[in-house]
Design a protein around this nucleic acid. Structure first.
Lengths: 178, 178
DNA sequence: GCTGAAAGGGTGACAAA
DNA sequence: TTTGTCACCCTTTCAGC
């Protein structure tokens, strides 16, 4: 609470216009700058300049297509809590995690487990094989798996593929961009 | 294993070219059709037709910008296991989940918990407030939270905002598109 | 799936507020 | 400092093949 009276702490130069531009791009990353400009009340050129700045600032990290994993044959999804022997160094954990392409997200967490993995596989059989590989890793002591039964936000099974993304512009960008 | 000798069961008409086009779009959703065509050995027109078909088939569900939530002031992330009273109907759970914009993903799962929620908040204080709101919902009996400490796949905190997405084109799209 | 042509978007330089 | 206009070139899009 030093320079501005915004509702959240954000990047210094990030105004309402930027917020609406990001919202438009989250909703449709292939929209033209002119289209976005018309929606937010700016010229296409001005929109492009702001987008370039936000990319340089690391606010926007990229543009990606969202796909339905089930359409690609990846119909099985699970979350796996990992319990490690002794103090598991996050640095080492990260290396291990990178060796299994089926792990689509992984993080260290508070609570009983040391890490939480988000895994996608082609089938339950495939998932079992992945789990065996993970449990065979040096300092993994125990795992607790939860298979995903149904998505409560996108019942159709609409999911995607991109660096660490989740949801946002559903019904108008309620989540991250209010 | 009926018509083709592909490695996984996928949508009927989905070949190697489609796979590479999707991979290109996941890596950069704003790439031009000509660029993609040059990369996969097709004309831009042919690429567009395939993309249009895949959108119609629901393989590609959209295009979105990926952002760093922390840059937008959403620096706190947690997973919340929800235990319900009696048989919690997924239909009702979905309604509840939609009332809290901080819930960026939610699913029913196997194991002890009935549902798993992925929550993003501006701060630990904000998260606590969200948790109180969730626990006040009618048939929520108990919750178990795990605060995310660090991302093991994108250490920089690079995350995103889009309908149900996660990772894929990191270092060449190892995950969903091998 | 390719080619060609018309419409429209991306991008940089320049001037103005 | 940020925006708008303009000009150039590339992309998109839709024929017809």
């Amino acid at each position: 609470m030093s320079t501005k009276a915004t509702t959240h702490a954000t990047t210094p130069q990030f105004d309402e216009l930027d917020r609406r531009i990001v919202a438009a791009l989250v909703e449709n990353a292939r929209a033209s700058f002119n289209e976005i400009g018309a929606a937010v009340g700016l010229s296409g050129t001005a929109v492009k300049r702001r987008v370039d700045r936000m990319r340089a600032d690391g606010v926007i990290t990229g543009f990606t297509a969202t796909v339905r994993p089930s359409a690609l044959g990846w119909g099985t999804e699970a979350y796996v809590e990992v319990y490690c022997d002794g103090a598991a160094p996050p640095r080492r954990l990260a290396e291990v995690v990178r060796n299994h392409p089926e792990i689509v997200a992984a993080m260290t967490v508070t609570g009983g487990a040391d890490a939480l993995l988000h895994v996608r596989a082609a089938s339950v059989q495939h998932f079992e094989e992945v789990l065996e590989r993970i449990r065979a890793e040096p300092f993994v002591r125990r795992t607790v798996s939860s298979l995903v039964l149904s998505d409560l936000l996108a019942p159709g099974g609409e999911h995607a593929a991109a660096p660490g993304t989740d949801r946002a512009a559903r019904g108008g960008g309620a989540a991250l961009l209010r």
